[in-house]
Design a protein around this nucleic acid. Structure first.
Lengths: 237, 237
DNA sequence: TCAAAAGTGTTGAGTTTACACCCATGC
DNA sequence: GCATGGGTGTAAACTCAACACTTTTGA
């Protein structure tokens, strides 16, 4: 009988952290936000934005707080990714379990204010991530996988683009992230058939060539359709 | 400067639990495994199988241990579902964060040995779940949603069926869980076209009517195909 | 011989793919 | 006028949905 109780009485010495994988997209490149540790064992190592959860703080609030404190950033999309707690030594100091969150920011939001916990906060292109502290490289891998998958069944790409965007930007985003060639005509046709992106009457595309229309994602409309059983689905040959 | 450190120094008093939502399928009914609390504030309340994580224990090992201790069960499929930690008062005693796991058992495995932590362990049909302790009703909802979604893009239904099964059982599983009518011919055609289930030369279906062939899921073959880029996908009208 | 479940093909509709030329602008 | 990226339609291949009768067994 006593044995039963020991599990609860033996003091638990596990700490809980949250970490955020923040993705940003600009110049046809996917970037991840990293911060440099200021103190401790891993001083000067790059890591994900994150920290310990306070006793009276919801997990998601802890993430939002860390994002603000360490990078002065507000994200566009946030969802829980996975909880990393199988490797007992993932943190060399203590047993720490990390609830990882997956975040997207609008590409117009890529200014950072380095702050308190971090010596520096910086965007790194996904193909050029340094060796990070803890198991954070692994966490980014998992997040990237999730991002790629979600792109095709949830209209999540818009959270990486500015409010108003060119069709070519949307197309490039899909091409780049999924690493596939896409037929421009079919892509546009399919996307437009869902009736969730709308033409504005503004024009963009300051570069050379014919100017292009700016489009806008109608989130309300999407959410309405979704309730009616609509399933967003973008696939390619 | 000192402020920075307070987050880490102020002792964290958050406990970590794991909970398992175990689904079993029999008699055309989806069941969830619940245990009755033996002690404490919630004595005699039904809850999910779960408990606190030990200091040197991987999360997934904690789940496996609890499943064994509380229900004497070994599962067929286990994956992390979600970490519930936004509601600070989800456990009335302390701040507890629960990493919930999603498990499936073969329908032949539905015997239970009530044990240590639980007064009783029992299967409850999904449409008849009592009011549970903590936020466990909510957790089951999330798990059920996941199960339904996964059914159509991962061959996960086989983990709820016996090793060898009738096509009609597979079909009923899909019908029941997704709450849809399915055309028998189209269903079979589609499934067979994936070449991941194989005819055995045994017959089943002891009831009335024409005897039916037993089939078998070829997991190796599926995993191979998956690596080659194959995507399992079962949808209906 | 009847009831109960198993097994099986075809056709039309809709969707997806493949593919190439003209348009508007800046230089 | 030319280089650059923007914008557009159609036909063939394929996939999906709808649909009903025959077979095998036990009672």
């Amino acid at each position: 009988m006593c044995i039963i109780y020991t599990y609860m009485w033996q003091e638990q010495k596990i700490k809980i952290a949250v970490d955020a994988i923040v993705f940003g997209y600009s110049n046809n490149t996917l970037n991840v936000l990293l911060v440099k540790q200021k103190f401790g064992l891993l001083k000067d190592t790059w890591v994900l934005v994150g920290g310990f959860v306070q006793n009276n703080e919801a997990l998601k609030d802890a993430v939002a707080r860390e994002l603000k404190e360490e990078a002065g950033i507000e994200v566009n999309y946030l969802e829980q990714l996975y909880t990393f707690g199988d490797d007992i030594n993932r943190d060399p100091r203590d047993r720490v379990i990390s609830v990882a969150y997956f975040a997207l920011v609008n590409s117009t939001e890529l200014h950072l204010t380095a702050d308190t916990d971090a010596d520096d906060a910086q965007w790194f292109p996904i193909y050029n991530i340094p060796k990070l502290g803890f198991d954070h490289n692994k966490i980014i891998e998992v997040a990237l996988e999730r991002l790629k998958n979600k792109l095709s069944y949830q209209p999540i790409g818009f959270d990486l683009l500015p409010e108003e965007f060119l069709f070519s930007e949307l197309e490039n985003l899909y091409c780049t992230l999924l690493n596939k060639e896409i037929d421009r005509r079919n892509f546009r046709k399919k996307f437009l058939s869902y009736n969730v992106i709308e033409e504005t009457n503004k024009m963009g595309g300051k570069g050379t060539g014919r100017p292009a229309k700016l489009f806008k994602f109608n989130k309300q409309k999407y959410q309405l359709l979704e309730k009616e059983g609509f399933h967003f689905d973008i696939k390619f040959a």
